[in-house]
Design a protein around this nucleic acid. Structure first.
Length: 430
RNA sequence: GGAGAGGUGGCAGAGUGGUCGAAUGCGGCGGUCUUGAAAACCGUUGACGGGUUAAACCGUCCGGGGGUUCGAAUCCCUCCCUCUCCGCCA
């Protein structure tokens, strides 16, 4: 949510700014609603003031023991108009609120203009894609042989649930678990994060706070019944909302949290996309990093956060590149986003494995997350989030990058203690 | 699932229809004292919106929503949450 003052001042430049995202702000509608709101609010407050005055007079008269009947008669018919004004005002404010909840965050000046991911800009590259002297297989071909020791079992996922669900067995399941462990250990031991274990089900206030609602409800899995609960699409939601409706002390900042959770996404509108393998699933696991910071520190924090995600890939010896998302590809709440794309030999391409965003005060304003600043005034914090990393996609990357000619997978050194082996998926016979 | 008790400012905790946005304590901030600090004492200290150069000033907010009333923290309805006891249970 943007500062309401922006909707009252220079609407045209706000509209121009939002146009970078192809978001069309209807200036006339906002203007007319704002005008009516201002008039009605003034009038309502005047009437409220009158009512308060009269009520106090009656109270005082009664305390003195005077006859209050004449005063009561005088004040009798005031209520209707006030009620009407209050009702109309609430309705107007509801409309303005709905608009402001649907407006995306302002982009940082450093974000390049562009329509789609094709216009994202490479910031840096790390590692060299490995040259293979045999035919490269993708993670599906590498793991779908059920006769072998470990497997990615897509058929069973479809059997027990449906499409875009996967069952992992044996060594693959263990490698997956090892990856999540490794990431958590790294972030807590070396990057200064507090580890949290949070609910995987959240209420709509939390989803509104981080801005998945009201606009992106169709991306979520909602629970049946009248609880109003949803499965989390990312642990960004529970982690960030820990500071909802809070006034923090400056000493509390920065807050750096990490958690390993499943993520549930309906993937509405992605029917033909990434249907092969476990790149795009309805359920996947992710180690998330969230920063709650002083507003002046958030841009430094974005670099730091991105570096923490990169550190995971470097220790796993996986080649990647860092991209600045262009204006058209940057998410709703973000002012600026770095995507980290890992090299996938099976796709002969870099694919997103982490997304690190500075949401500035956008989520904080929705959540009313503030701190008491140097002057003793309340001020909105800035929030950041990033994947550190998507575990399933990291699994894919390890499998594809570390494959051997015989179909086995060599395990990165840092994972070997957790996996308990230096090679998995060894052929059982010749 | 059943019974009961509660939800009030950063925290604790009074307040049961009329200057109550709310006593008091803690914490925070400023000061006195002190070489400095602590203690003690004095003062100050809610959030949000409108308004102003700044103030004054006005409005809203006592878990959420609705109602009664000239007037609601206080009464009524409803939902949510917390605690205690019982039952069930990983």
């Amino acid at each position: 949510m943007l500062d309401a003052k922006l909707f009252r001042a220079d609407l045209q430049s706000l509209a121009n700014e939002l146009a970078r995202r192809d978001y069309v702000l209807d200036i006339d509608v906002v203007n007319s609603l704002e005008d009516r709101r201002r008039d009605l609010q003034t009038k309502t407050q005047e009437l409220q003031n009158q009512r308060n005055q009269r009520s106090k007079e009656i109270g005082a008269a009664k305390a003195r023991g005077d006859d209050i009947e004449p005063l009561l008669a005088e004040v009798n018919d005031m209520g209707d108009e006030l009620k009407r004004c209050e009702h109309d005002l609430a309705e107007l404010q509801g409309k303005l609120q709905a608009i402001s909840l649907s407006v995306p965050n302002l982009l940082d000046a450093s974000v390049p203009n562009g329509k789609s991911e094709d216009n994202n800009v490479e910031v840096r590259k790390w590692g060299e894609p490995r040259q293979f002297d045999f035919d490269v297989r993708d993670h599906v071909d590498l793991t779908s042989d059920l006769s072998r020791d470990g497997a990615l079992d897509f058929d069973s996922g479809a059997l027990i649930t449906g499409s875009r669900f996967t069952v992992m067995r044996n060594e693959i399941a263990r490698l997956h678990r090892a990856l999540a462990q490794f990431m958590l250990n790294l972030h807590t031991a070396e990057h200064g994060y507090t580890e949290l274990n949070v609910p995987f089900i959240v209420n709509s206030d939390s989803l509104t706070g981080t801005s998945q609602l009201p606009k992106f409800a169709e991306d979520l899995f909602a629970l049946e019944g009248d609880s109003g609960y949803y499965l989390i699409p990312t642990s960004e939601v529970p982690l960030t909302n820990l500071v909802r409706d809070k006034i923090l002390s400056p000493d509390d900042l920065p807050i750096k949290m990490t958690a390993h959770t499943p993520c549930f996404r309906s993937e509405a509108g992605s029917y033909g996309k990434d249907t092969r393998g476990m790149i795009r699933q309805h359920q996947f696991e992710k180690v998330e990093m969230v920063h709650i910071v002083h507003p002046e520190k958030s841009w430094d924090a974005l670099e730091e956060l991105t570096g923490h995600a990169e550190a995971v890939l470097q220790k796993l010896e996986l080649p990647y590149r860092v991209m600045t998302l262009c204006s058209g590809d940057t998410g709703f709440a973000a002012s600026k986003t770095y995507d980290i794309e890992v090299w996938l030999p099976g796709q002969d391409a870099y694919r997103e494995i982490s997304s690190c965003s500075n949401c500035t005060d956008f989520q904080a304003r929705r959540m009313k997350s503030r701190f008491r600043n140097e002057d003793g005034k309340t001020e909105l914090v800035h929030t950041l989030n990033g994947s550190g990393l998507a575990v399933g996609r990291t699994l894919v990357a390890v499998l594809e990058n570390n494959q051997q000619q015989d179909g086995s997978i060599s395990i990165p050194t840092v994972l070997q203690p957790l996996v308990g082996a230096d090679t998995i998926l060894k052929p059982t016979n010749g």
